[in-house]
Computed example of a mutant assay.
Amino acid sequence: MSDYPHQVSVPTRWKDNDVYGHVNNAVHYSLMDTAINEWMIGKAGFAPLDAPSIALCVESHCQYKAEVSFPDTIRLGLRIGKLGTSSVRWEIGMYRASDDALIAEGHFVHVFVDRETRRPVPIAEPMRTEMSKLAVTSG
């Protein structure tokens, strides 16, 4: 978990469990997206409803390592694996809070685009400066 500069804990909900008795895979993606947007809004000052540029997900991946079930709490770690001119690769580790077991690792790639034209634009300041604090590599 120490490999991730930003961390957030999220309790699972009763409705997160599927018929097999564990948190459904779609919840993992939702939690990754939530951790990323929580960071962008809270730490980097992103205003999703009126910013001139927005982040579009162009790639996502999740590799499941262990099960997790309600009422477990999931700890999510967030870092940036690659910071480009208009794109960013977010990397997320998910851990069961009760025993620190790694339950999933994933990534999202966002491309920042102009809100109106949907054409790529450079990541704006101060977002870029804040992102660089999470970066494990730059490029």
Rank of each mutant, 00 (worst) to 15 (best):
G21E: 12
F112I: 03
E38K: 10
K133V: 03
E67H: 11
G81L: 01
L134H: 01
L31F: 06
F46P: 08
K133L: 14
F108P: 06
M94C: 13
I74T: 10
D3M: 05
G93V: 03
G45H: 12
S69E: 11
C62L: 12
G45D: 01
S53W: 07
V58E: 15
H28G: 09
G93H: 01
I74A: 04
S132H: 14
H107F: 06
Y95F: 10
I54Y: 00
I36Q: 15
V58W: 11
C62Q: 05
R118Q: 10
G45C: 11
E105A: 15
L78Q: 03
R119G: 11
G93A: 11
D100Y: 03
S53Y: 06
A55C: 08
D99P: 05
R96W: 01
P120K: 10
A97I: 10
S30V: 14
P120V: 08
A51I: 05
E130Q: 11
E38H: 01
R79V: 00
W39F: 08
P52H: 08
G42W: 11
T12E: 04
N25T: 07
V111T: 05
V136S: 02
L76R: 12
D114T: 05
R119M: 06
V23A: 14
R79H: 00
G81H: 02
R13E: 15
H107A: 08
E105H: 09
R13S: 12
G45K: 08
D50F: 10
L31T: 13
A124K: 13
R96A: 14
M40K: 01
P71L: 05
A51D: 09
G139T: 07
T12G: 13
R128A: 02
V10W: 13
L76V: 06
D114S: 05
T12A: 02
V19R: 12
I123V: 06
A124H: 04
H28Y: 00
R118S: 04
V113M: 12
Y29K: 06
S86A: 08
H61G: 13
Y29V: 07
R96H: 09
S98H: 04
W14D: 10
D16M: 15
V121W: 09
T85Y: 09
V113H: 13
P120I: 12
A26G: 04
M32D: 01
M127P: 03
F46E: 10
Q7R: 15
R128E: 00
K133M: 00
R118E: 08
N17S: 10
G106N: 11
V68A: 14
L102D: 11
M40Q: 09
Y64M: 12
Y95G: 09
E59Y: 06
D114W: 11
I92R: 06
M1P: 15
A55P: 04
I36Y: 13
G84S: 07
